[in-house]
């Protein structure tokens, strides 16, 4: 993995009328890395991506890819950057192969070289069998895979994907994520994935950035984010014991630093500002309870995400917090 910065933004801002879609974004993505841009719908992910491709002009600030200014030299940027939109479209009356051929021509390819490249790419994404079908008949998963081949036609250094896993079935999703991973690990391409689907992104990303209402609230490796949260005093503990009675509940409730308790099945989920594990196990031992389950949460993205999101919500008194909160945890939400 290279240490060179591939994608960089400095104070990137986009204002639509009154609404600030992207607010002073400072982002730096290294060469060969998979970066996940996470955030609920309407957080400004797509706007950021469009600015990176020079398709939307930033109100303030600048963005560069491989040192090329995205707004002023968008043609050069688009020569080395592949873009897979959230609902990738193909000409429905043309076959998969014809669609790829058209993209190839737009990128200045021609003749035998292009044909053999198309063969390779179709093979790679596993679409050789459907190359002579019209794309109007393709399923969502097939379209996405053809989309990858389409992006690779120009042999890009950087690949930007906007909600690529939306609407894929689990099997399709798994294959798709493997493909993305390959693009980075085997080919050394830089990949920027935007998504609101946390679990999938967690599996493949080297680093993530959490994006809430136009601002990047956190960025880094997933483990680092978890550690950072713990430092700031956000602990979530799952605990289950037998017998699960009121006395036990009362004990937890009276402990200092507890900010909330939820019951999930036969487990308690305890939110607190400090580590409670030692005291709880001590209590359970001395009072002859049987400990069934004890887990400190915080390492997984879902939790990190929720915490950052809550923090951002508190900061801004964001009205739609609850509404968006639901969106985050939905795994099969469609965008429109």
């Amino acid at each position: 993995m290279g240490e060179n910065t591939m994608i960089a933004t400095r104070g990137l801002t986009k204002v639509y009328g009154e609404k600030v879609a992207v607010n002073h974004l400072d982002l730096s993505i290294n060469e060969g890395e998979i970066f996940g841009l996470l955030g609920p719908n309407g957080a400004g992910k797509t706007t950021t991506i469009l600015m990176l491709l020079g398709l939307t002009e930033p109100t303030l600030g600048e963005a560069t890819i491989n040192g090329i200014d995205c707004t002023r030299n968008s043609i050069q940027v688009k020569r080395i950057t592949g873009y897979l939109p959230d609902n990738v479209g193909f000409y429905p009356d043309m076959t998969g192969r014809e669609n790829l051929r058209f993209t190839g021509r737009l990128n200045g390819l021609d003749g035998k070289k292009m044909e053999s490249k198309i063969d390779d790419l179709l093979e790679r994404v596993g679409m050789t069998y459907a190359q002579h079908q019209k794309t109007g008949t393709y399923s969502k998963g097939m379209r996405q895979r053809l989309g990858i081949a389409d992006v690779l036609m120009k042999d890009p250094k950087v690949i930007i994907m906007d909600e690529p896993t939306l609407g894929l079935d689990p099997e399709g999703m798994r294959e798709f994520l493997t493909l993305i991973k390959q693009l980075s690990v085997e080919d050394g391409r830089t990949v920027l994935v935007s998504s609101h689907q946390l679990y999938q992104i967690q599996q493949i990303c080297d680093r993530v950035g959490i994006f809430v209402s136009g601002s990047l609230v956190a960025a880094g490796k997933i483990e680092d984010l978890g550690r950072q949260l713990a430092k700031e005093g956000h602990y979530t503990l799952e605990v289950a014991a037998y017998p699960c009675d009121d006395r036990f509940l009362g004990f937890i409730h009276n402990m200092t630093g507890v900010t909330g308790i939820e019951k999930e099945g036969d487990k308690f989920v305890v939110h607190s500002s400090r580590d409670l594990r030692k005291e709880i196990t001590g209590f359970l031992g001395t009072n002859r309870y049987t400990l069934l389950h004890l887990r400190q949460k915080g390492g997984d993205l879902d939790e990190i995400y929720r915490c950052y999101f809550e923090k951002a919500g508190q900061d801004e008194k964001h009205e739609q917090e609850n509404k968006n909160g639901k969106h985050i945890f939905g795994t099969k939400q469609t965008k429109k």
Binding site: L55, I75, K78, Y83, F90, L106, N107
Partner: peptide, 8 residues
């Protein structure tokens, strides 16, 4: 979308 993200 796809068209305008090509280098044209």
């Amino acid at each position: 979308n796809r068209l305008v993200s090509q280098p044209i």
